[in-house]
Amino acid sequence: MFGTGMSNVSGWLSKSLMARRHALQVLGSFLLPLLIWCAVSYLPFIWHPKMLVEVPGGVDYFRAGMLVDKSVFQDELTSMQAQNLELPQGKPANPIYLPAPHEVAKAFYTAFTKAPEQKDLPWLHESLWHSVTIIFWGFLISSLIGVPLGILSGTYSSMARLNEPFIEFFRYLPAPAFGALAVAVLGIYDAPKISIIVIGTLFQQILIIANTTRKLDPTIVEAALTLGTGRLRMLSRVVVPGILPDLYRDQRILLGWAWTYLIVAELIGTSSGITWFITQQARYQHFDNVYAAIMMIGIIGFGMDILLGKLGRRLFPWDRSQKKE
C-alpha cells in the first residue's frame, strides 16, 4: 500500500514537473525574442547605428531630435573641433524603424484609448474588425467549395483525375496576380479582396483535403462495406466522420494561410483594414503603431489557433493524435 502510494506521488510529481517545464519552455520561446529586442533597444553599446542630436552646436543643419549616422556625427564633431566652434551633443540611437518595446506597448494601448489624429480615420480596432470580416468571408466561401470538392476528390479517383491536374496548375498562379482582374470584375471595395483570399486558399484546400481523405484507413471503409453500407451513406457516415479531426486540423492551418493573403488582398482596390492602417502609419513614420498593428495580427491569429485547438480537443475526444500537441 505504502509503496504504491509513494509511486503515485512520485508519478504525480514528475507529471507536474513536466507540465511546469513545458510551460516554462513555451514562455521562454516568447521571452527570448523579447529579451533580444530589449537588449538592442535599451543597451546603447549594442547596435545603435545612429546618433540622436540633442544639441546641434555649430553644425548648421543639425536640429535637436534629429537622427544622423554615427559616422556623419563623428565627421561633424571633428570638423567643429577643428574650427573651434560649439560641439554638437547627442546619444546613440536606433533607426526610426526600430522603436523600443515600451514605445510599442504604449502605442498598443493608445490605439484603443485615444481617437485617431484625423477625424475621418478609423480606429485600430475598426480596421482590425474590417480585416477579420474579410478573412471570415474569404475563408467561408473557400471552404464551402473546397471542403466538399476535396472530400469527393479524395474518395473517388475519377473525380480526382477530373479536377486535380487543373488545380495543381492553378495553385502555382500567385493569387495577388489576379488583383487587377478582381478589381475589374468585382469593383474596388471588399469583393475583390475576398476573392483574392479565396483564390489563395481554395486550390491548396482542395488538394490538402483530398490528401487527408485518401489517408483514411482503408480497412475502416472495408469494414463499413461488409456491414452493408451503401455508397451515399459511406460518405456521410464513414468518410466524413473518419477524417473530421484531420480535416479540422487542415482547416486550422489553411486559416493561417488565409491570414497571410490578407495583406495583399487589402492593398487591392481601395486599401482598407489593418493594411491600410499599417501603410498609413508607416507613411507618417509612426513605426510604434506599425509594430503594434502587426503584433495585433499575430495575437489574433495565434489566439484563434489556440482557441480552435482547445475546441478541437473538446469536439473529437477519440482523436489521439491531438494529445501529442
Binding site: 484507413d217 480497412t219 475502416i220 472495408e222 469494414a223 463499413a224 464513414v238 466522420p241 473518419g242 473529437f316
Partner: peptide, 10 residues
C-alpha cells in the same frame, strides 16, 4: 479484420 477496424469516432 486483423487490424482493429472499429470506427474510432463512435
Amino acid at each position: 479484420f486483423q487490424g482493429y477496424s472499429l470506427f474510432p469516432w463512435l
